[in-house]
Design a protein around this nucleic acid. Structure first.
Lengths: 136, 136
DNA sequence: CAGAATCCTTGAAGATACTG
DNA sequence: CAGTATCTTCAAGGATTCTG
């Protein structure tokens, strides 16, 4: 856990207005992937470019509202590129940027870990619940 | 994104929502690390065992409330072990389990990525804000 | 088709105070 | 020392409606 936390108090980068860019890199990334939808969207876009409604169907239970919002953030952060084709009816395509793809590399490792250890976690939870139920 | 996500768009898996243990391993893990404190706690415990108040001081701006809650969840999920020494005054030590340590391995990769690309993200954000300010 | 605008609910987190 | 108990706030996310 070294790199991110030791640098977060770096007093030398006072180049701009504070209070809106996050001081801690990993926090920034976690805020992005911590939400309900970002990772699902990135995963859906990983193999191929998709249009708005294709993305909506691919994910299934996401509201248009949240899909729109989340895509905007991902676009603003440079993970996703949005391309509007000025036709009628309008067509908009979303595709991963190089940054977006590169992000999925370490993320994939985490997915592997999660798959490998999910059972351990569930077992631990059941044990905890059993204890909790027994002692009150 | 193979193992976890390709299966969740599968239209054929309507076997009924079990509704108690999370169906998606990665979601489970993300829920844990997505919150404000879990990762900070794991990071603090990585190099050494700590007592409750040591942990509190190590993290700094966490309330006792949240420290207690988060530790309980981490303990229930098997990331952290809690040991109570029945002395007066009481002493409680928290330490990472093998599962907790193994989790930090892929997590570390994500931290590296975040450090390496934080500037890209910030730059992208600034550009997005500039565009946004210009077009309305 | 691809969103934006609006309103509302809920859970996460903070503040504060108390306890074995 | 190591917590728990309440109360409150706040923002993420959902539902619904409207539009170029």
């Amino acid at each position: 856990m070294e790199p991110s936390h030791t640098t977060m108090t770096d007093p030398a980068d006072e180049t701009g207005p504070p209070a809106f860019d996050h001081p801690c890199p990993i926090r920034d990334v976690l805020d992005r992937i911590g939400d309900q939808w970002s990772l699902l969207i990135l995963g859906a876009l990983a193999p191929r470019t998709l249009r708005f409604n294709e993305l909506s169907r691919a994910i299934g239970d996401i509201s248009r509202q949240m899909l729109s919002r989340t895509l905007k953030r991902l676009e603003a952060d440079g993970f996703v590129q949005r391309t509007l084709y000025p036709e009628v009816p309008p067509r908009v395509e979303y595709t991963l940027t190089a940054l977006g793809h590169s992000f999925l590399v370490p993320m994939q490792q985490l997915v592997y870990w999660a798959d490998a250890h999910h059972e351990d976690i569930c077992r631990s939870r059941r044990a905890a619940r059993a204890l909790d139920a027994g002692d009150h």
